[in-house]
Amino acid sequence: MGLKQLLTRAGFLITLGLLSACDSGTPAANQEATTSSEDKPARVALVMKSLANEFFINMANGAETHQKDNADKYELIVNGIRNESDLAQQVSLIEQMMATQVDVIVVAPADSKSILPVAKRAIDQGITVINIDNKFDQELMAKMGVSIPFVGPDNRAGARKIGEYLAQQLTAGDQVAIIGGIPGAFNAQQRQAGFEDAMTAADINVVSIQAADWEQAKAATIAAAILSENPELKAILAANDSMALGAVAAVRQAGRSDDVLVVGFDNISAAQDMVKNGSMLATAEQYGDQLAVFGIEYALQILESGQSPEDKNTPVDLVTQESLQ
């Protein structure tokens, strides 16, 4: 009997504890406060990929900070999926946000096709849907008769900027190599195209283009091979910083740090240090923590003006030794 009573009490205590824990922790409390005011602020749902991934956590945190500074303009509900590829959970989340009658859904789709049908239903329900991070499939969008604006960095333009900066340090006819990301990935293709644009414009000779799948170790192996094959090589353009770090390691091992320049993309902290000390020439900053904010701001602008949504580019800035000073 005593045990039974104990269990009963434990059950109640846990329930109570849960209730109070939720009470203090949720944004619902401040929601209540703001919805009572005269002109209702817009309700924005941010549906992310995995919130176990630093890149997306930063994005979500950036959005939450922005919301706090603009509490009169909008309310924010942030949700993410358990792992990068849990499509079903992302579809569920969007449906749940539809059920709560949000005005805006800003989504970083886990898949460029599978999330489209539910996004279309949201639009049909009158919700403004904004696409960030991973662009929806253009063909399927056309087939389904929807258009969802993509707000994100123009990787091609960013890569071109880096390439142009590099070209200033080189002379026409010089030899360079490009190390690309995962071949099928959209941003990998865009960055490579941007590099090539800049090299072609400056009459610089791209002697080798190879994919290292965004990975540092793989890039180091590939860069080493390229270096030994091309003794006249003047620069390596890597499509992200991890691969640039790998390339820098290979250049150092080959003893050609003074002759071969390396550029990357993303402005991760390790790369920043390398740019500062000169082992990397440049990288690019795409303001990852602001990517969701850009989407939200654009959505609010659409809500206010009723303009027809179009794709929108967010800034990509060159990072060099001077800019870091």
Partner: peptide, 24 residues
């Protein structure tokens, strides 16, 4: 999800409810 509880709290609360339900 509708409350927009953070991912960390979501998991902790879900875990607690599973245990509480079994205790019940």
């Amino acid at each position: 999800a509708q409350l927009g509880v953070s991912e960390s709290s979501k998991r902790i609360i879900t875990g607690l409810v599973i245990i509480a339900a079994v205790l019940f």
